[in-house]
């Protein structure tokens, strides 16, 4: 039995819908992780021990255990305590938190390496410490970590395939479902791979645009 791509057009809509889910989940998780890692960094650096410590515990759990397990925990586990999340939402939260925690140290370091004179200049015009952090220090820290965070988004895209295990019909699961009907794994896995690659290229393109845009303001 050779390769036969003639069945592909017939199932293209399912695959494209899978792409849309993959893109949507990746973007949502990226946004969540973006703000999440800033919040984690601020908590780690600027809050008293009683607040900081529980968050560190959460961070350890997210860093030291498999993402797959975390997804199971959020989707199947939380139901038991009355939190019944739709699968896609559980997926976004799992992915988002995982990546937020993984990179919050990057932002912490970036915040600490913003020139001390920036905080001083902001305080000198009358901003409070919080205002200065929000408007002066953190925006600069975030700009300085855009390139590594960009690479991270690519990793996030690839890891988004894991949410297929909790039944989100993203690209990988869509391909699997089509394969279940057509018995053509090679064609459809290959196709899914091609779509991941295209999405990847698109993301890199957007990231390059962003980097170029902020290059003057650093």
């Amino acid at each position: 039995m050779g390769l036969d791509f003639s069945v592909v057009p017939q199932y293209l809509d399912i695959i494209l819908l899978g792409c849309a889910w993959t893109i949507g989940i990746t973007l949502a998780a990226a946004v969540l992780s973006f703000f999440g890692r800033i919040i984690f960094a601020v908590i780690a650096l600027y809050t008293p021990w009683v607040i900081r410590q529980p968050f560190r515990l959460i961070a350890w759990v997210f860093m030291g255990t498999p993402l797959l397990l975390q997804l199971f925990l959020i989707y199947f586990g939380l139901v038991q305590i009355g939190i019944d999340l739709p699968a896609f939402l559980a997926g976004i939260i799992g992915l988002g938190l995982h990546f937020a925690v993984y990179n919050s140290e990057l932002i912490q370091t970036a915040i600490l390496s913003v020139d001390k004179g920036q905080m001083e200049a902001a305080r000198t015009v009358g901003l409070s410490r919080g205002q200065a952090l929000r408007k002066v220090v953190i925006p600069q820290a975030v700009r300085s970590v855009i390139p590594p965070i960009g690479n991270n988004m690519i990793a996030l895209l690839k890891d988004s395939a894991l949410v297929s295990v909790i039944g989100v019909s993203e690209l990988t699961l869509s391909a699997q479902r089509v394969i279940g009907r057509t018995y053509r794994p090679f064609e459809f896995y290959l196709m899914a791979a091609a779509f991941y690659y295209v999405i990847n290229l698109g993301m890199e393109w957007v990231l390059r645009k962003i980097e170029r845009r902020i290059s003057l303001s650093r």
């Binding site: 020139d115 920036q118 200049a121 902001a122 000198t124 015009v125 009358g126 409070s128 303001s217 650093r218």
Partner: peptide
């Protein structure tokens, strides 16, 4: 913070905010 609004300061190394025009 109120007092500092009344006292302008200029530093040797400018300390302009690089992310703002």
């Amino acid at each position: 913070n109120e007092m500092r609004q009344q006292i302008g300061m200029v530093f040797q190394h400018f300390n302009l905010f690089p992310h703002l025009t």
